[in-house]
Design a protein around this nucleic acid. Structure first.
Lengths: 305, 305
DNA sequence: CGAAAGCATAGGTTCTCCCTAGGGCAAGTC
DNA sequence: GACTTGCCCTAGGGAGAACCTATGCTTTCG
């Protein structure tokens, strides 16, 4: 079987015209080089060097092989360099999951942070829709993610890093003059985001629990996919909505100018957490993303611990 | 240390997404593949696959490595193909030595023969001057040669294949009307070729012996390097010359029109022989050249045995 | 919850790599 | 022409790599 080591020995011998010299050059004993050359000759079925008195002389076969051997060695070294560059974050792709409204807080700035420190890398933020993130985590296609809705999913390790309060958004200033109670919430016309995941969305669960405790049943008038859409509809006065404070700060001025918001009573919080598979040893890239994402979200939300 | 085997395993695992499947594909047991991947990961210092429940998933490092690994494997395979083509004479260079007047007989047609059978090869006929051939043989830079002056050189094996008669060439038809005796030869004004090798040239030795036996001393008027020059000077009537019949047939009509030739008395012969180092195992290329050269020279000269 | 699939580990065998020691041949030297 | 030197080869042995079978553990699927 052909090996890189054989090719390296071959090239050195070809260059120096001597097994002994090649052995010195490569730091081996002469019989070792001899053996490598012999095994290479055997594996191609042709003589590469003519043993002639003192020294060896390359055959025309060796002339033919030489450039290819050099190309092969070069390709192998280039392969090593490529992964070393990835190791040093000089290049390569870094993938990170981000799910729910978390992206509103950190996605853009996180990418900026990474690119600033490692200009060569390619950054992929996976999961503008939530199910993908969990599936990708479960399937191992991404190592870690920052999510806003801690699932009790088995096999996933969850590290809360910050929390953000839920706020009630409306175009009617009267409705946001005072904190919104469970009763008022139950009576409101609401537009809620993340339709597809209403069964597992932690915000929904929190609101449902709050209403239940007050003896009410949750009722939403409109269901949409995006937080953006929910806020935009609120801006048109069609309904009110409940979102994270961060989302409100970020989106209301742009999508629902004139809308105001207030907290709930009792106050409700959503936790942001880093999630990854249990027992996973995280890659440097993943650790970097986690570090930056945590720093960013702690700057804009309320840090936990 | 990086190895081609590791890269092959890596690519198969990457493609199939499974160690077990890769093991089946490559014909190994699963733990062997596992070990190869692990050692590759260790040698680059980065994880290539995330072990996730059922199967493995490539990391971004693996994505980076893959094209380089493919390029390296491809280069290695191309190297093998290249030498296999040489093996089959589909390409590559074939070197052969040819020395003395032998080239007049076979050099051009020999090249034609080779190119006809193996259109892809490059043919090099080494040694239009004689010393190079022996030196190249001695140094091992060529494996074999066809020569016209069998040297008693130690370390070289000589296989006579044909002989050619020496003829006396002159512009004076009277001098070639009858075979030339030693006495007439001693009296003639001669131009002789291969000056540089007069001490070892077998034709010189043969003539000298012939003259000595008749009690004469050899005396040459003009010494030149080339047979061509000798014949050309003969054509101008400046002197007569002694050359192989083959050289006369080939060159006299072109270089000395009007000149005629006759044999010597007693008749003198020059032997053509294949020469190579003793105990040398000849390459297929060398054997081919020998075979063709022998066939050719036996067609135009008088075969021995 | 049991069965199946897939990776990791353990232990042992075989093969490869590399070493040292010594033989043989060719080239250069006295 | 014998001697020395340089260089390759062979032989034999030890360390490590590669590979195998058997088995255990985790995840996934019915």
């Amino acid at each position: 079987m052909l090996s890189l080591h054989q090719l390296r020995c071959f090239l050195t011998v070809y260059e120096l015209g001597s097994l002994t010299a090649a052995a010195d050059e490569l730091g081996y004993a002469q019989p070792s080089i001899s053996e490598q050359i012999r095994s290479l000759e055997k594996s191609i079925g042709l003589q590469l060097f003519r043993r002639v008195g003192r020294g060896v002389v390359p055959t025309t076969v060796a002339d033919t092989l030489r450039p290819h051997a050099e190309a092969t060695i070069a390709a192998a070294e280039e392969a090593l360099r490529a992964v070393q560059r990835v190791k040093a974050f000089e290049t390569g792709t870094i993938r990170f999951g981000m799910f729910g409204s978390a992206r509103l807080y950190v996605s853009a700035t996180l990418v900026t942070d990474v690119l600033e420190r490692y200009p060569g890398v390619r950054v992929e933020i996976i999961g503008l829709n939530s199910s993908e993130v969990l599936e990708d985590l479960r399937r191992g296609r991404i190592e870690a993610a920052l999510i806003a809705a801690p699932p009790t999913n088995e096999g996933l390790e969850v590290l809360p890093v910050a929390r953000d309060e839920l706020v009630y958004v409306s175009m009617d200033p009267e409705r946001t003059a005072t904190p919104v109670t469970a009763r008022r919430l139950a009576e409101a016309q609401l537009v809620m985001a993340d339709t597809s995941y209403r069964a597992t969305d932690s915000m929904r669960l929190a609101l449902r629990k709050m209403l239940h405790e007050a003896g009410h049943n949750p009722q939403t008038r409109i269901e949409v996919e995006d937080v953006e859409t929910a806020i935009e509809l609120t801006g048109r006065g069609l309904a009110d909505t409940v979102v994270h404070r961060g989302a409100a700060t970020e989106l209301v001025p742009r999508l629902a100018p004139g809308a105001t918001w207030t907290v709930l009573r009792p106050r409700q919080y959503e936790t942001f957490a880093i999630v990854h598979r249990v027992n996973a040893t995280l890659s440097p890239a993943a650790q970097l993303m986690i570090e930056l994402a945590v720093a960013r979200i702690r700057a804009v939300a309320e840090p936990i611990r």
